[in-house]
């Protein structure tokens, strides 16, 4: 039940935001737990955004791992 799904913030009105879960699956979610702006990715759990997703970190982490794996191979 701790499933949380990333979604793209399309618009924000007060505590509510319209988000896109991908392939145009749109839904209104509550964003009072995060500082969400249009364009952010948020992690949505049961209708509430519980955290922002750091896109830069996501990409950096992956390349870091690739690096570590290669470095440790040598």
């Amino acid at each position: 039940m701790c499933l949380a799904i990333p979604a793209h913030v399309m618009s924000v009105t007060g505590d509510k935001a319209q988000v896109d879960f991908g392939q145009n699956v749109l839904r209104e979610v509550n964003v009072s737990l995060v500082e969400a702006k249009v364009g952010d990715y948020v992690l949505v759990h049961a209708g509430y955004a519980i955290q922002k997703l750091d896109e830069k970190d996501a990409l950096e982490t992956l390349s870091l791992w690739r690096e570590i794996l290669s470095a440790e191979n040598q």
């Binding site: 039940m1 509550n30 009072s32 509430y48």
Partner: peptide
């Protein structure tokens, strides 16, 4: 209201 710490914040809100 069932759930771990992931779910409890919504109840609090």
């Amino acid at each position: 209201a069932v759930g771990f710490e992931t779910t409890a914040p919504a109840t609090a809100v």
